[in-house]
Simulated scan of single mutants.
Amino acid sequence: MTGRRRTAAVLALLAAALAGSAVAGLALGPVRIAPGQVLDVLSAGPEGRRGAFASIVWDVRMPRVLLGAVVGAGLAVAGAVLQALVRNALADPFLLGASSGASAGAVLVIVLGVGAGSAVGLPLAAFAGSLAALVAVYALARRGGTMTTGRLILAGVAVQYVLSALTSLVLVVSAHPDQMRSVLFWTLGGLGGARWEELALPAGALLAGTGLLVALARPLDLLLAGEEGARTLGLDTGRFRAAVFVLSSLVIGVLVAYSGAIGFVGLMVPHAARMVVGAGHRRLLPVCALAGAVFLTLADLLARTVAAPEEIPVGVVTALVGGPFFLWMLRRSTRSEGVAG
């Protein structure tokens, strides 16, 4: 099977999996609805919603499922791109501090109330925090023109600790007791606050950002070949990397502003996608988008059903899955660096 046919088959399978996970997300919860009834409600359309089941599907669960798919897709795409920018398979929006930076910026806006009421105040603050964290980690990890896995991880952990301490300080000093619980849940990642009127901005950021990044697939592929090779082929690596850092931070910031910090999606999904369709970004990024949407939709379904009627933050679920995966990848990466050295 050629690479193009394989990619088309994988995308078709992932699209079917996303449809199935979405139906499961609409059917399961504290109130269980049969899949057939879910399909009947969906076929009737928004204008035909009548009864309790229709209200649950359209008003409560549909926005949450859609937000989960959008956030999962965006984090997976951003993770694949960051891995290309720093040429390290362990890069991830969460591990590189981008999600923590976005969370810190958003929490500052929420607690201090500066611009929190505007439609773009929270996403802008999250974007600024995400970009600042990425720049700090990159500057700390890159020394003498090289970047090792150890320095990258240590820089990411250090920036995360600083940002977490800043967020905790703001919460303790400024937050109202009732506000602290909701913000704490939000910093762990959660999709429970999804509303129809808030879906347009994250969906727009995902579509525009992914479209632009797919258009930049060739220079992203060049970066994988190394700095010198990319420059020889005419790529201004410094300017290109800075522009893509800004674009990735914008996507991450907007998504985290509506979902909170959800880790490890951008680490696991790109790695699995490369094993199936290869490292070429024109094929990789669409596969990452669909696979990330499926993964986070299922993770959120597990988060709200495993301990029902209580709800677990979806970031806890992704961390429980992604933590062991990260340790396995770190061990393999450290072993390969030791062999190379």
Rank of each mutant, 00 (worst) to 15 (best):
A106L: 11
T210E: 10
L131F: 15
S333C: 06
G260Q: 08
A225N: 04
G266T: 02
I56L: 15
G315E: 11
L184S: 13
L206S: 02
A141M: 13
I252V: 15
V316R: 05
A257M: 03
L224R: 09
I56D: 04
I312S: 05
P286G: 04
D92T: 06
G260R: 14
A208Q: 01
S336H: 13
T232M: 11
A104C: 15
D178I: 00
S336F: 09
R64Y: 00
F325C: 08
G101I: 06
A54M: 09
A104D: 08
A319W: 11
V70C: 06
G234W: 10
T146D: 09
A9I: 12
A272R: 09
S100G: 10
I252H: 03
V109Y: 12
G3D: 14
Q83W: 13
V77D: 04
Q37M: 09
A76E: 10
L330E: 05
A16T: 07
A15W: 10
V317L: 12
F127I: 13
L235N: 00
C288W: 08
G150D: 13
G45L: 03
G238R: 13
L301G: 15
R49P: 02
L39K: 01
R64P: 05
A9C: 11
T148F: 05
A136F: 11
G129P: 04
L152T: 08
L90I: 08
A175W: 05
A230Y: 13
C288R: 01
P219I: 10
L207F: 09
L90E: 04
L233W: 12
A9E: 13
A215P: 07
W58H: 04
V314R: 02
P93D: 07
G156N: 03
A84K: 03
P123Y: 02
G105L: 10
S336R: 15
P324V: 01
R331M: 12
V317W: 07
L122F: 12
V31S: 10
L255M: 07
P313F: 05
A289Y: 00
V316D: 05
F127M: 11
D236S: 14
L290F: 12
V314I: 09
L327N: 03
G211H: 06
A158P: 10
T148E: 05
V120L: 15
L212M: 12
S99H: 02
P35N: 08
G72S: 03
I153M: 14
L131A: 07
A319Y: 08
L134V: 14
A9W: 15
A291Q: 02
P63M: 01
V77P: 01
V317E: 04
F325P: 07
L112P: 00
F240I: 04
A91T: 09
G150P: 07
P309Q: 02
A273E: 03
M147A: 12
L13C: 14
A80N: 00
S336I: 12
A203W: 00
A78I: 09
A243G: 15
Y161T: 10
E197Q: 14
A17T: 07
